[in-house]
Each structure stands twice: as C-alpha cells, then as structure tokens.
Design a binder for these strands. Structure first.
Lengths: 187, 187, 187, 187
DNA sequence: CATGAATGAGACTTCATTCAT
DNA sequence: CATGAATGAAGTCTCATTCAT
C-alpha cells in the first residue's frame, strides 16, 4: 500500500472516530458537517469525498459493527454447548455488544430510516437455529412459535440495556435470563 | 363558557390534531410551523399563542395520554382480580394503548429530551404493587427483584408492539405472557 | 388596499427592477440571490417569499412583457390598414419591442428552459391572420406555406436586432422589410 | 510521430468527443470537469494538460468547425456558377453545417463570451463577394446595402435551423430561399 | 505527463421567530 | 388575539483548481 493510500485510510478512520464522538457528545442534529471536518482536521469538502451525508457515516459504522457481532455469534453457535447454555452465552454476548454500543444503536434508531425489521433481527437465524435445536432435544417448550421467543429475547436485552435499575449489568441480565429460561424450559 | 373561549378551545383542538397528523405523515423535522399553521387555518404567529414550539405540542399530547392511561390502570388495580389475572389485564391494556399510540410514543422518544426514566415507568408503581401482592400471596417467585420483573414486562410489551411477526397483536401478547408468567409463577 | 399590501407591492416592484438591472449589468450566473436582496434592501430570505429562484424572476418579467406585446399587436391587427401596411407596422412594433428588451430576451433565451417553440411564436396567430388576409385579397404570393413566411419574418427581426451594421435601427429594418416584401408580394 | 505523441493525440480526441457529448446530454453548467475526466478515463488533473477550462474545449471545437466551413465555402466561391446559383449553394451548405452542429453553436452562443460580431459573419467576406458580383452583372438589386443582405441571409438560415415547421429541412430552406431571391433579384 | 485527494470559498436554501398592522 | 411578511443565521453541498506522489 502506497503512502497515499495509507494516508487515505488514516483520514477515513479519523473521520469516523471524530464523527461518532461528536454525535455522542452533541447529538446528531446538533453536529454540523463543518464541525466534523474541523475536528478531523480536513476541509469541509473533503468530508464529501468519503461520505455523502452524516447518515452515511452512521450506516457505515452500524454495518461494520453488525458484521462483527454476527461473526461472534456464528462462532458461539458452532460450539459444543447445550441449547440453554448457548442461549445464555448468546444473551451475554449480544447484551454486552449492545451495551457497549448503545449510543451507536440509539443514534441509528433515531436517525437512520432503516427499512425492514429492527436491528437485532440480523441474528435471528442463529437464535432460531438454537431454539429449534432445544425444542427437538426436549429442553424447550414446543407450544410457542419460535418468533415469539426470539422477539421476547430481544426485548429482554433491550430492557436490560436501557435499565435504570442499580443492579450491575450482568447480574441484571442473569435475573431476566433466569425468568426467561424458566418460562421457556419444559418442566 | 363564552363564545370566545369556545372558539379558542376549538382552535387548540384543531391545532393539536393537525400537528400530530403532520408529524406522523411527514415526520417531526420535516414539518414546519408554517405548515402546521396553514393546515390548521391560522396565521403563523397565532401558533405561538398556543404553544412555544413543536416540541411543546408533543409534550402536551404525551402528558394527556399518560394521564388517561394511568387512570385506566388505577381502576384495574382496584378491581378484585388475582395478581396473575391483574398482570394479564394490565398487559393487555397497556399493550393496546401503546399499540394505538405507537407513533406518538416514537415521536416523543425521538424528539423529546425526556429526563429521567423512559416512558412506561410512569406505571411502575402500579405494577410493583401488583407484583408484590402476588409474591405475598405465593403466586409469584420471590427470588427476583421487582424491578427486574417490571423491566422485563415492559420489554415484553415493546417487543410485541414493534413485532414483525404476522401473528395478530393480542395473540402475540398472549404467547409472550404465557412464557413470562410461566417463568414468574412459583411451581 | 391596505398599507401593508401597498408595501408588499412596492417590494415586488423593487425586487424585479433590481434583479433585472443586476442580470443585465453582471450577467445571470454572476448575480447571486444575496446580492439581489442586498440591492433591493431586503433580507435574503425575503427574496424567497416572492420568487422561488432567479429563473422565476425572469419568467415573470418575460410573461408580463409578452402579454403587453400581444395586446399591442392585437390592436394593430384590428386597425383598417392593408395587409402589407399591417405587416410593415407589425414589423416596426415587434422590432422596437425586441430592440428595447433585447437584453431581457437574451437572458430568457440563455437561462430559461422554455419548452415549446421559441419566443416570437406567441404572435404567430396574428401574423398568420395577416398573411392569409393578404393572400386572399391578392397582395401576397400563395405558393409559400404561411409558416415559412412567419419564420422568415421573425428571422428578419432577429437579424436586425443583433445587427452589427452601423445603420440606424429603423432604417435597417426598412431595408430588410423592402427586400422581404418584394419577395412576398405578387408581381 | 512517436508512440507517445500518438497516445497524446488519442487522448485529446477522446477528451473532445466525450466533453461535447456531455455538454449536449447534460448541459454545459451541469457537466463538471471531473465527470469529463472520468468519462475520458483520465485523471482530473490530466484534463488541465490539454485545456484550461470547459470553455476552452468549446472554443477549440468551434474554431475547428468554422475553419472547415470556411474552406468549403471558399471552394464553392471559386466554382463557375452564376451568383444566384452560388447563393443557393452557399445557403444549402451553410444551412446543413449549422443544422448538423446546431448544438455546438448553441453552446457557444450561451457560454462563450465571444467578442465581436456573431458567428456566421466569419463567412461574410465570401458572401459579400458573391453579392457584389451579382450586383455588377445585373442579377441583384443595387439599392440595398450588402450588409443588409448578408444579415437577412443569416437570419434566414437561423430561422430554418430553429424551425418548428414539419417541413423537411431542405425544402424549408428552399421555400425561404425562393422568397429571399425573389426579393433580391432585379425584375 | 498522469493522478486524484484535498481544498475552501461561496452559492443556495430553510425556517423559527418577531412585530407592525 | 390574529396575522403573515420580513428576517438572517446557519447548514448543506459543489467544484474548479492545486500539488505531492
């Protein structure tokens, strides 16, 4: 890679970092492109050589993050745990990622006119896999549509992320997981 | 009430209706005050005799709706049902109201810098009441903090409202309620 | 008319005058809306309360001028002159108007994406009328399509307007008229 | 010619072709230099090794075309036809060239700040020659300044080029020529 | 000679808000 | 209380041109 290309890559990285920082600190609408450019130490016009709009930056970061997440889950899914264990692990993984990137997801929710199902459903396939495996080997109830379970699962995570309880995140997640699994598992 | 007052009230109603209609149809940021005024058949300046800003209208409508909801729940709480039955009823009531006013709540979430806990917690007191009653009379598990339960409860509702499943709303809610109650109730 | 309305009308007039002046002095593309506003002593935004764009001003002025012209010609057409005399009079009238507003017409030609036939054809009906009258009463040749005659007629005017000859305008017009009529009239 | 020179020439040709194509398709102002460069498959900066601006390209093409035209007319003028025949031939030749390059001429008119007389006068010398020959040998009227005749002649061509009549181009030209020559020739 | 990322001036446009009527 | 024209700050975005590679 030539020095020129390295420089280009560097600018992109700085641009993305600086943009997200500003979005989080000042809010999306309150951040102007010229501010971003100043903060990234580039000319206003240069911004447009990398992205078409503020939304574009958000989309770029979101896509990257979702791909990373999906990879993590895929890995988990191929491990040799039992379905309930897998569910618990997935919950913790997704929960952590959501927690760590909550601001990103909030920004996307607010300012990206996403078509299609909401975020989180990107991993539905994996979850569905897992739940069906659990239903087959008798761990999980069979009288609920899988979709209901995945939706409730995501709701569980979201409620934890946005929780105002003073309980630590993981503990919070575990409490809810306990309730959720108790309802899900056959007796 | 004088004719003048009636007229004023009429303008207020029209103004609110027209504003919400535009917010929902075109989006909050895309709706200008002058558009609202035109649609409500008043002068631009007149808007300011009723509200200070677009946000103000949103706040007004939200407050009104939350009060109505709280009243409904209060009533339910004072009925003579068992805790699990109450929970189920509350779920259906809140669920319906959220569903019916989903667009309003979305708008508020996006454009009202609410301080404090998120919407839904307005009814927490009532829920907490109910759950504690259930724990006391032995219907509900006692090893979970009440807060965890209420949060999961709200997550359940939210996941149903934003559901992309093709199942009818009430049925959807019932499935999740079944899972939730199964986890919550003592065995 | 209230004072307010009078003021509004006054602003419109000033705006149009000032705009045309700048277009002619500096050129269309070189004139910015904020310059226009400054010159008209109004705020930038106020411009947009009257017109949507610079083109819009041009269109407004053109339409006004064309209507005036058409009225003049209509009047001439209803007079009791012979067809050749009418043609000559029309020529002089249209010629003068074009000459006086040459800059306007040039601006329109360059910057208004007019659909349909080019300017000048607005008066075609009147010309056609006149020529057919002349053909019927035997003054004019009948072996040429009327359209050819009107087109040549307009070409004649345009060539005079854009003439670089040192001959005075009217004389120039008369010379060409003489050649044109000689070709048009029966022998 | 070295391979390098051939390559250079090839780039020039492509550049010119591509530029004119874009000007015609999208309009002058709407075509950016970077678009031209992309379409010609060269870097933005390379454009500047060939031309200083978009106008420059236009000027280059116009000059080339006018020289070609002048050569054609010169040839015609040295032929052994009678003045009226020559006029007719010139008319057809110039008419065709104008017709074929109408878009080029329009672009130049709009975007080249030509000083001096308008296009078409480049051939005036030849026309003047011809007309004077005709006046001397008694074919043409002598009571009109030559300039008036040449101007009307050019007006005739322009009106034909921009004609909206449904008559074929050559026929159109012939009709007008007939009228024009009838007025021009002595009786 | 070729490249194309960087530049930044400046044009356009919107709209909440004011205030004279 | 109603009106709506005027305002101008502020933001977005474009593009000819340069220059280091």
């Amino acid at each position: 890679m030539s020095r020129r290309d390295r420089k280009k890559r560097q600018v992109l990285t700085t641009l993305v970092d600086v943009t997200m920082k500003l979005f989080i600190e000042k809010g999306f609408d309150e951040t102007t492109i010229s501010e971003i450019a100043t903060a990234a130490d580039i000319g206003t016009g240069t911004f447009y050589n990398y992205f078409h709009s503020k939304e574009d930056v958000l989309r770029y970061v979101l896509t990257k993050k979702l791909n990373e997440t999906k990879d993590s889950l895929e890995e988990l899914n191929h491990s040799s745990m039992s379905p309930p264990e897998k569910i618990a692990q997935i919950l913790l993984t997704v929960g952590k990622i959501f927690k760590e990137n909550q601001q990103l997801f909030n920004l996307c929710n607010r300012h990206l006119a996403l078509m299609g199902p909401p975020h989180g459903t990107e991993f539905k396939d994996i979850l569905v896999d897992m739940i069906q495996a659990g239903q087959i080997n008798g761990d999980f109830r069979k009288d609920l549509p899988t979709e209901m379970i995945t939706e409730l699962f995501m709701g569980l995570i979201k409620s934890t992320i946005t929780s105002h309880a003073k309980i630590p995140f993981e503990e919070n997640l575990n409490y809810k997981l306990s309730l959720f699994l108790d309802g899900l598992m056959t007796r």
